[in-house]
């Protein structure tokens, strides 16, 4: 028996779902603004060497200059161009945001799903470990670890943020897994002879894509803020150019007292904008996971 019509095979459902998801996010007004802002930052980061007017570490300019045609945002106390630093700083923030956000999401997915699926003693053990990470205050832990591993560069920052940031996501995913686990199709997969790992990652996981995506953007936002915080406290590598180190040096050189508001204001605004864009995207993702949250779908 041959196929009656050989229509082009439709997209695999996972891909079709992704495309539908992207379309839903795009139709959401706030999320679209978020995507555009994020896109601008990504373009800035990727093209930084070509867009930035000077090398960010070139300190051959006058010190603490006010804004001018040569230096739109002025120069730092060390004589570097602020605009160039700002543009290059986007690279670090995005790298840390997506790197640490991604790693902590992967950890929370693996741990959260297994935790939600298993019963009995293994579940209790995971529960204990996750609770341990939840009760330890995040920022002090971050500071301790970052101080301990200081001068490891940006990868240490990423690792620290990822290690301290996955536990909440794991909890959320665990409860969703536990509820999906009770659905008949999971039981049916067991009846089809599927083994646990495949049930967890092939049957259950795709049904919470939007939750995971939401968790990822949330974790990325937290990571960007945490990175800026650590750098601002001088706990990172203060020789790299990032928005956090810009704030750190601006504070050190009393930029506000010298009237160089742009030195504090510009990196602060960029951090806020980037974090806002990710949060806006998350509104759109909420619309996928819970259609009731789609704008205008209810009259109340």
């Amino acid at each position: 028996m041959s196929a009656p019509e050989t229509a082009p095979r439709p997209l695999p459902p996972a891909l079709a779902g992704l495309r539908g998801g992207l379309r839903t996010i795009w139709t959401h007004r706030k999320a679209r603004i978020g995507l555009i802002v994020l896109g601008l930052f990504v373009v800035l980061a990727v093209l930084a060497p070509w867009i930035a007017p000077y090398d960010p570490k070139d300190n051959s300019f006058g010190r603490s200059l006010a804004g001018s045609a040569q230096h739109w945002l002025g120069t730092t106390a060390a004589g570097e161009d602020v605009l160039s630093q700002l543009i290059h700083g986007a690279r670090i923030s995005l790298l840390v945001g997506f790197g640490a956000g991604g790693i902590s999401t992967i950890i929370s997915v693996v741990i959260g799903l297994c935790w939600g699926y298993v019963r009995g003693l293994p579940g209790e053990v995971i529960n204990f470990v996750v609770n341990l990470f939840l009760v330890i205050p995040g920022l002090p832990l971050m500071i301790v670890v970052a101080t301990y591993l200081s001068d490891g560069g940006i990868s240490v920052i990423i690792a620290v943020i990822a290690i301290t940031g996955w536990a909440w996501g794991a909890r959320v995913l665990r409860s969703q897994t536990a509820s999906l686990r009770g659905r008949d199709f999971v039981e049916a997969a067991r009846f089809s002879g599927e083994r646990a790992p495949r049930i967890i990652f092939r049957e259950i996981l795709p049904n919470m894509t939007s939750l995971i995506a939401g968790g990822f953007f949330g974790a990325a936002t937290a990571a960007i803020l945490a990175e800026a915080g650590l750098e601002y406290l001088g706990l990172g590598d203060s020789t790299i150019v990032s928005w956090g180190t810009m704030l750190y040096w601006a504070q050190n050189s009393n930029a506000l007292l010298t009237g160089q508001w742009a030195l504090l204001f510009a990196p602060g605004l960029c951090i806020a904008l980037l974090a806002t864009s990710l949060t806006l995207i998350n509104f759109g993702i909420d619309g996928i996971s819970n259609p009731r949250l789609r704008e205008g779908s209810t009259g109340r």
Binding site: A188, P206, N207
Partner: peptide, 8 residues
């Protein structure tokens, strides 16, 4: 609920 909504 007995069929995975994402599987053909």
């Amino acid at each position: 609920s007995a069929l995975n909504p994402l599987s053909t």
